[in-house]
């Protein structure tokens, strides 16, 4: 097996994914092929099952069907086992370790790549991977600040930075730009494209303007099913999407 051969498996394949809570079917046979080097967006009205798809792929919700990454089945594994395979995620409300500094937050994300021994020692200096990630997400100047005092946008960036230190090859981001200023949104969009070259990035998003500007591939979910998938132009031209989703869009925004 050469490195190139392994690389061909380096995509996330989801087939016939079903998630149900009691009688309610939240995700009903979703199929996705998520390639490396592209920024994918999952869009759809509230309750379409976007976050549930991510939950199922990261062990938070029990899913049925097939979801493979790098030849490994993700469904049925525990969250930490999935993270160790290189599939990382963020949450709608940024979840960072508030009592730890930005440096400690980033550093802790790299635990699984370090020797066991290093766990029993204090950290000396700033590890290279941490410095690079802090630089990439623009938090280098805030390393010694407790994460709890960061702004909402900075916390989202910190979470993305943690995924970089963790060396996640698939990044599942749940509404990363919600609540961000226009400037922060642009910075985030560009960041996603920069780090997306060698990774698989999936973004759940409501903000259609953000999707239009930064999506390589868009998948529209509706009532737990895939309605359409393709470039933003293809999606916009799709009559079914116009009927079901874009028609409701104004309402969706006012609800949000």
């Amino acid at each position: 097996m050469t490195a190139e051969l392994i690389r061909t498996d380096d995509y996330l394949e989801v087939r016939d994914l079903r998630v149900s809570f009691g009688d309610f079917v939240a995700v009903d046979g979703v199929a996705l092929t998520l390639l490396q080097g592209q920024v994918h967006f999952l869009v759809g009205p509230n309750g379409a099952g976007k976050t549930t798809v991510i939950d199922a792929l990261t062990g938070l919700a029990r899913g049925q069907g097939v979801a493979t990454f790098d030849g490994e089945d993700l469904l049925g594994r525990s969250s930490h086992a999935i993270a160790r395979l290189g599939v990382g995620r963020t949450f709608q409300t940024a979840t960072v370790f508030n009592d730890l500094t930005v440096l400690q937050n980033l550093d802790i994300a790299g635990l699984r790549h370090r020797r066991r021994r290093s766990l029993w020692r204090a950290r000396h200096g700033i590890p290279d991977a941490v410095a690079e990630a802090a630089e990439a997400v623009g938090l280098s100047h805030l390393l010694d600040r407790p994460a709890g005092v960061l702004s909402h946008g900075q916390k989202q960036w910190l979470e993305i930075g943690m995924l970089l230190v963790q060396d996640a090859r698939v990044l599942l981001l749940d509404e990363p730009v919600a609540g961000m200023s226009a400037q922060e949104r642009d910075a985030t969009g560009e960041l996603l494209h920069r780090i997306g070259r060698e990774r698989t990035i999936v973004v759940v998003e409501h903000d259609m303007e953000f999707v239009r500007r930064y999506a390589d591939v868009v998948t529209v979910l509706h009532a737990g099913r895939v309605l359409a998938s393709g470039s933003m132009e293809q999606i916009r031209a799709n009559p079914e999407v116009q009927r079901v989703y874009l028609g409701d869009h104004a309402e969706g925004v006012s609800n949000a």
């Binding site: 525990s78 993270a83 009592d99 802790i108 635990l111 766990l119 204090a122 943690m162």
Partner: peptide
């Protein structure tokens, strides 16, 4: 407390579920 283990312990105390997504049990 000073070691990385101490930081991991605090992280676990404050956001146990989040620690899982770092690949740590």
């Amino acid at each position: 407390q000073r070691s990385r283990f101490g930081e991991l312990l605090i992280a676990t105390r404050d956001a146990e579920e989040r620690v899982r997504f770092l690949g740590q049990d």
